[in-house]
Design a protein around this nucleic acid. Structure first.
Ligand SMILES: [Zn+2]
Ligand SMILES: [Zn+2]
Ligand SMILES: [Zn+2]
Ligand SMILES: [Zn+2]
Lengths: 131, 131
DNA sequence: GGAGCGTATGTTATACTATAACACGCGTCA
DNA sequence: TGACGCGTGTTATAGTATAACATACGCTCC
């Protein structure tokens, strides 16, 4: 399960090294020389990383980040705060939010598969250096 | 402000009549005969509708829906429950959710511009007729 | 060993989503 | 009248994602 192929490991390493979310084509461009040469390869790697909970997709950016919660084991929905100024992303872990998601999921859906929660704005670091 | 052009009104009417979210190209296909012939036209209409709070974008589907909360005036983030079986979308209005969004926005961002909240799964109507 | 099968990988082509860039017409107002 | 804003129209292109098919390797079962 956490048995990644060398290729998937390269994609994960790239995501972990990045300080911003990367699009699939960003990843493709950076890993061309390392044997990942076509979009399906990248998307397949990302798919597996997401299955394992090692990466997340940011729906509002069409981009991907490594999971920032290193425990990995527990079921976390993937919630994010995104700075539109500097691109930084912070993964939110909040019990009240999880509870709210579960509650609303139970109310509006018979079975819930996925939850997307993304906040965009200006981060604390950036608000100072606003022009 | 709520002074829509005929074109924008057509797009809004189409969204309101639909029982599922529509992609920009779905809309384009259906309105070709009515004078909306190219992608930019559609995207511009959608942009204005969203500015006025009359439509929302579903980030996880790359699709659009008419706002289901007819009051319109108040500032609502746009939160949704999506059935992946039948495509139905329900707009969620929940005070606890709004409060949580505000709280987390204040905590992780200096200024919040946008919040995305989308739940996917199987709706109550569909869970019965599961094959 | 070799047939059969599953999984991973590779490649080409294409579909789908979104925007850039420029052109035009039409009201308003100095 | 002419400068301007604004909505609109068109072409072309950028950016995102998947279909469909081909190949290779590691198994098991006989
Ligand atoms: Zn995570
Ligand atoms: Zn920032
Ligand atoms: Zn709404
Ligand atoms: Zn349903």
């Amino acid at each position: 399960m956490t048995d990644l192929s060398p290729q998937n490991r390269k994609v994960l390493a790239l995501l972990q090294a990045a300080d911003k979310p990367l699009s699939a084509y960003d990843i493709l461009a950076k890993l061309r020389r390392h044997g990942l040469r076509s979009p399906p390869t990248i998307y397949r790697a990302l798919e597996q990383l997401m299955r394992c909970g090692l990466a997340h997709r940011l729906e509002s950016l069409n981009a991907f980040v490594a999971c920032q919660q290193h425990d990995g084991a527990h079921d976390h929905a993937g919630s994010f705060a995104i700075c539109t100024q500097c691109g930084a992303v912070q993964e939110i872990e909040d019990p009240a939010l999880l509870k709210t998601i579960k509650k609303l999921g139970a109310k509006f859906l018979a079975q819930m598969n996925k939850g997307v929660f993304e906040l965009s704005g200006t981060c604390h670091a950036c608000v100072g250096k606003r022009k």
